[in-house]
Design a protein around this nucleic acid. Structure first.
Lengths: 220, 220
DNA sequence: GACGTTTTAGACAATGGTGTCTAATTTTAC
DNA sequence: GTAAAATTAGACACCATTGTCTAAAACGTC
């Protein structure tokens, strides 16, 4: 379901305790349906059916549709955040081949943060409902696209400090790195398809090659 | 596809003749509302009100909601296309300062194709309704993000042929150029704000600087 | 001014959604 | 095994929306 073969927390469920299976099931189904249909187009009946749960149960757990929606968004954001930091921690402390390491990193990032179900959900929902629920996605957009921006900037700062990169503005570089990785994937992700592993690797290669041409520290 | 040679109204209206002001007014209002609310969330009543037209008139011109929606999408795509080629034609045949020319070009592109109302509409609607109406946006995604990709690739091929750029894959370079320009604007455009002219210029500068570091032909 | 067309407001049925309620049934906890 | 809690199906009122229909009004053109 979650298309991740990485070390990952299983379905994190935000801040509520008392997490019977139903509750989680509803959250997952709701994410699916909200993502497919948008807020207005999604019906509680459809969500209940997809969760294999009666409609009343949905109302028991989440008072109303809007409430369910915010719960879903928060849940997905939590999970996406956990995933992001899990992936960031995989970057080697002392890279031996910067290009390869960055490419592998980019592949993991795009596979598990951008092209997966949660990434698609967030992109789509921020786009279509972001203006209607500004408070909901505030934290998302506050830290650039999903906090990835600032975390990446920190990573690049570390690499620059080690003399591996030559960067004047870390934030700009981070945004550009993400943008480059996305460049070859946009076609696929926009339409909704999940790119193959080969596409991911090719996109990462292209991105890293260009990024390093622009930002690699001149050979000593 | 039959382009009428009747005097073209400032808002292009695709393929129908008999373009009374009402028809255009409805198209514009519908674009607004569909963009704000998505397909499911938009109501004909709201569109009619925004167009200052009775609901019946909407139904007279466009049989049903879905029909109106496709008409709007086609209209916006036509207009966006025209705008794109108009902008492409502004790039100087023999650039005297590549960085400045590219930056100015990027500003025009982002201002008039990406950050404007039509760009926002297309991005949002492709994202949220693209899977539901794959045929509608096929041409959009066929040629990369809105045909800009292939057109840009051709431009870069020309510049490479003149010895100003050194590019191995023009399509990749085109996608990356667009991605870089977007990198600094995503935050704003995702949320729905229209960036100021300064932001546009700064984004273009950042994008072009990185792009040229990666792709500028080595000085002769 | 007359005539055909377009537009309008409003009523209308049909549909589908939300959220509530109830009473029966299942699950869980003790 | 029993009591409490959770879940279920179904009916329900309420509301918004789509799309149709009608008869009156406005419009444009000759």
């Amino acid at each position: 379901m979650k298309s991740s073969n990485e070390p990952v927390p299983k379905t994190s469920v935000h801040s509520q305790r008392g997490q019977c299976a139903k509750r989680i099931s509803i959250l997952e189904a709701a994410a699916e349906v909200f993502c497919r249909q948008g807020f207005a187009g999604a019906s509680i009946d459809e969500i209940a059916a997809e969760a294999c749960v009666s409609r009343q149960t949905v109302y028991n757990h989440y008072r109303e549709k809007e409430n369910l929606f915010t719960a879903v968004v928060e849940d997905v954001m939590d999970r996406a955040n956990a995933m992001l930091f899990s992936i960031l921690s995989t970057f080697p402390e002392n890279p031996d081949n910067l290009e390869d390491d960055l490419a592998a990193f980019a592949v993991r990032l795009s596979r598990n943060c951008i092209c997966n179900q949660d990434g698609k959900f967030l992109r789509r929902l921020v786009q279509s409902e972001g203006e209607r629920y500004p408070h909901l996605f505030e934290s998302w957009r506050r830290h650039g696209p999903g906090k990835i921006g600032t975390a990446l900037a920190a990573l690049f700062a570390r690499l620059a400090h080690k003399g591996l990169l030559k960067i004047d503005d870390f934030d700009v570089a981070a945004r550009q790195f993400l943008a480059l990785v996305n460049a070859d994937l946009q076609m696929s992700t926009l339409f909704g398809a999940t790119p193959s592993e080969e596409e991911l690797e090719s996109a990462a290669r292209n991105a890293v090659r260009t990024f390093l041409r622009a930002y690699a520290a001149p050979a000593a």
